[in-house]
């Protein structure tokens, strides 16, 4: 099975991982630090790496003065729904793109790729008009719909790559055993591809989680706003309110970190658990 690595491999690896962790975490530390500083100490100079006094006022004011809990919940619900639907739909299209050969396949791939190149403002006018006509303005459900559309192409392309990594023989065996194509896809391939599916789900989730432009335009009511809209609200014409914004950012980052930590178990689970061997 897996052999132990020699020291000349494991020491540089640990060092490399350690260095990157520091680089990666520093900005988070900085936001965290800022979020605990009282307003008058945030822009202090010389720079302080530890607050003179800890203040929770940024956090309390966040919940007292704004609907932050609602924003968080909205973001969670909207992103999770969009990511789930988009990943499911993309499983189907990716499967076809990976397993079949047909003339227009390149065109389909390109059509998916092109959606990733479109600047949002071009589509915004017609989209807003359409949403007005459909009565979807200021509805979280409407936001979910656009986010699904936004996520499908990326998910299809990524999942197609993961499908390609799974040998054809797997589902063929299942189909010989009498499973339907869909049954083979669902029961045989999907379990094998779990790492890729989870990774794709996460990225879809995060793309919606961070989306600002459409969320600002399509949502009006305060308690239906999502996190990015709320975060951007701390920037005004004459000031960036670093205190409450950092507190909000910390509360935004933490759930995603939990998600990553949870999901990463499944990303690394991989084929080692023997799904293919059976």
């Amino acid at each position: 099975m897996i052999q132990k690595d020699p020291l000349w491999v494991s020491i540089p690896r640990a060092a490399g991982l350690g260095v990157w962790a520091l680089i990666s975490l520093f900005p988070l530390y900085w936001i965290l630090l800022t979020s605990f500083k009282p307003a008058n100490q945030i822009a202090e100079y010389p720079v302080r790496y530890w607050p003179r006094e800890f203040s929770f006022s940024n956090y309390t004011s966040l919940f007292q003065k704004s609907e932050f809990g609602a924003y968080l919940l909205n973001s969670l619900v909207v992103s999770a729904s969009a990511a789930f639907v988009a990943t499911t739909i993309a499983l189907l299209s990716a499967y076809v793109l990976s397993r079949f050969h047909f003339r227009s396949k390149g065109a389909v791939m390109m059509a998916f790729l092109v959606t990733q190149m479109i600047p949002a403002f071009i589509a915004l006018g017609p989209l807003y008009q359409m949403f007005t006509n459909l009565g979807l303005v200021d509805k979280r459900f409407g936001l979910v719909l656009v986010y699904i559309a936004m996520s499908i192409p990326f998910a299809s392309i990524m999942l197609r790559g993961f499908f390609d990594n799974v040998p054809d023989s797997l589902e063929e065996a299942a189909m010989v055993d009498g499973a339907s194509r869909f049954g083979a896809l669902w029961r045989v391939i999907v379990p094998v591809m779990t790492p890729g599916i989870i990774a794709t789900f996460i990225f879809n989730f995060v793309n919606s989680w961070n989306e600002l432009f459409l969320a600002v335009t399509l949502i009006n009511t305060d308690d239906r706003k999502t996190i990015p809209t709320a975060l951007n609200g701390f920037i005004s014409n004459f000031n960036i309110e670093w205190g409450p914004m950092s507190a909000a950012a910390v509360l935004t980052i933490l759930p995603t970190m939990v998600l990553f930590a949870f999901a990463s178990r499944w990303i690394v689970a991989g084929l080692t658990q023997g799904a293919t061997k059976g």
Binding site: S81, K139, P191, W266, A269, Q273
Partner: peptide, 29 residues
Amino acid sequence: MRKKLLTTVAAVSALALSLTGCSGSGGGG
């Protein structure tokens, strides 16, 4: 194990989706 995860994710997301659907069509404005 893995299947259980997928089912859980599916259930949670479906719940979330129905939530947005309901609250979306309900509100004022």
